[in-house]
Write a protein that binds this DNA or RNA. Structure first.
Lengths: 154, 154
DNA sequence: GCGGATTAATCAGAGTACTGACTATTTCGG
DNA sequence: CCGAAATAGTCAGTACTCTGATTAATCCGC
């Protein structure tokens, strides 16, 4: 009997947390626009004219995934994609009016959903919740991209 | 400028946390066996002979996903699947020797990985981290399956 | 013991997410 | 200015994740 308790495995908890969120999003926010899609809309509201790669960086999606998400949003007429005249490798992204409207509508619903989602925690606990998750995620992302070249190691 | 700060959105944080975990798992634990696959192996070490649906329940995966995960583990010879003679709808699952060996090996590596992943938090913070995530996830899952029929509600 | 409801599993379809290989374009050293 | 390196984006392949529809087997009321 060498089984472990998955409740002490942060990866397992992270997955369960995300699943629970996905479910609530589906019922309280939108069945069409997903959470990552909303994140992309949001990034383009904040900084219109970003290129695809940078949007991915802002919302934490790799080049392949961001390409698919953007292609879906484009098909639904929520954003436009034009070649950068200054750099023919880039596509510049900008929300359509419909995209802006959709973002506005979902922003309200998302706020409501977050309240329900976090309701089991007191305001003080919510602050801790955000802070701890962020610290763990930031640190792990840091392991990925070693900013400074490491010195010799055995 | 109506953009929101995604750092205050638990869904976004959950996704980032999971991605960070995925990455670390890949480098520190296994490139072949994924974290959900390990969860299935673990469930079958704890309770050999479970059926597919129950395994899904234990690890938090729906019927479709668990079917695919199990089919992959079966293809790799890590588990066996036999019809329940008592109930012809069910498949009973049991790890092969190779499956048990793999679980044992990954258990060690997973423990190491969890230490690295949680290193940014003090032991006290780690406890809080687990507790808060679990409470939020449990509550959201509870919204999904109303255990007892609710009384009248306005 | 027949027939409808329930339950276990599969299948089709959509979306997210990664890696590795490739193409197109730009940048920069000589 | 030419060619190598770097960069943006695409494509193929794999895996996870959900929903809704379908199939097969069991359960249960009569």
């Amino acid at each position: 009997m060498a089984a472990v308790d998955l409740a002490t495995h942060p990866g397992h908890l992270a997955r369960r947390l995300q699943q629970a969120h996905y479910l609530l999003w589906n019922t309280m926010v939108s069945e069409e626009i997903t959470s990552p899609q909303f994140a992309v809309l949001n990034a383009l509201v904040a900084e219109p004219g970003l290129d695809q790669r940078t949007v991915g960086e802002r919302v934490g999606l790799d080049r392949s995934t961001i390409a698919e998400v953007i292609s879906r949003l484009g098909r639904r007429g929520l954003l436009d994609k034009v070649r950068d005249p200054q750099d023919g490798r880039r596509f510049l992204l900008r929300l359509t009016e419909d995209g802006v409207r959709t973002h506005r509508k979902l922003t309200v619903r998302t706020a409501r959903m977050n309240q329900v989602f976090l309701a089991p925690l007191s305001p003080a606990e919510q602050t801790v919740f955000f802070e701890l998750i962020q610290r763990v995620a930031d640190a792990a992302e840091g392991l990925r991209n070693p900013a400074e070249p490491l010195a010799a190691q055995g």
